[in-house]
């Protein structure tokens, strides 16, 4: 076949090169890869937005709570104002520890001996739960960030494979014939990188924020635990 004819014949399909055309011309496997990567990208950005908002909220809540906590207000009053409401961050730790404290004294002070240890345990568990809540779904970002380029690469390799098969079948190596197939194949890698790059960056950023929040909670837990154990010792001595 005359190369010029082939070129002409291929042009109606290959001509534009818009994103949609690149997508529709692709092999079904490449299409699936592209759709999967786009979905992953949407999901990643959803997580990024949610987590960013969550961390901002958590940070504000912690600031507010610490302000109240160190304002000299009575712990009992603070607990009464908080224990019926859903809480997060430091407030959750506080209510969990105070609940344990209250229960121990409701029983008439019989279980004072290991109260301090129990409070520590309760705080640890609470910190763990809070951290889990903060870090939930962050692993999705890590996974997408690590695997999306490879998935995209798979789509590209597949696309180029089929492109070369087509070239072999048409027995024509004109660049105009080869280029569209390769372009659509590379489009898969482009989408993979499009999904992976924000995921990797956001994962590192959010991971750091989660670690910071966790550290803050642990610090608070230690301080609060110290305050409570001093109270316990005073009461036992009394």
């Amino acid at each position: 076949m005359n190369p010029a004819e082939v070129t002409q014949a291929a042009l109606p399909h290959a001509g534009g090169g818009s994103l949609l055309e690149l997508f529709w011309q692709a092999h079904i496997v490449v299409k699936l890869v592209m759709l999967g990567l786009i979905a992953a990208s949407v999901w990643c950005w959803a997580i990024i937005v949610d987590k960013s908002l969550l961390y901002a909220r958590t940070r504000r809540a912690m600031d507010r709570f610490e302000e109240v906590f160190w304002s000299g207000q009575s712990l009992d009053e603070l607990y009464r104002s908080l224990h019926n409401r859903p809480t997060q961050g430091l407030a959750t730790l506080f209510t969990a520890a105070m609940r344990e404290w209250k229960r121990s004294f409701e029983g008439g002070g019989r279980s004072m001996a290991s109260l301090s240890q129990r409070i520590d345990k309760v705080l640890d568990v609470s910190i763990q739960r809070e951290t889990e809540r903060l870090e939930a779904r962050l692993l999705v970002l890590a996974t997408v960030g690590a695997s999306a380029p490879f998935i995209g690469l798979f789509g590209t390799v597949w696309g180029i494979m089929t492109a070369f098969q087509s070239i072999a079948a048409s027995k024509n190596t004109s660049l105009a014939v080869v280029a569209p197939g390769i372009a659509e194949a590379l489009f898969a890698t482009a989408i993979g990188l499009f999904a992976a790059i924000p995921a990797v960056i956001a994962y590192n950023k959010l991971q750091a924020e989660a670690a910071k929040a966790q550290g803050r909670m642990e610090t608070f837990a230690d301080e609060f635990s110290a305050i409570l154990s001093r109270q316990i010792d005073e009461r036992v001595a009394a």
Partner: peptide
Amino acid sequence: EPGLVASGTGHAAILVAGLVAFSSA
């Protein structure tokens, strides 16, 4: 959890922008 909605609309916007910007090579 506004993330999903925000992300979906963001991607739709990017796709539209891409279609306009890369409408033809």
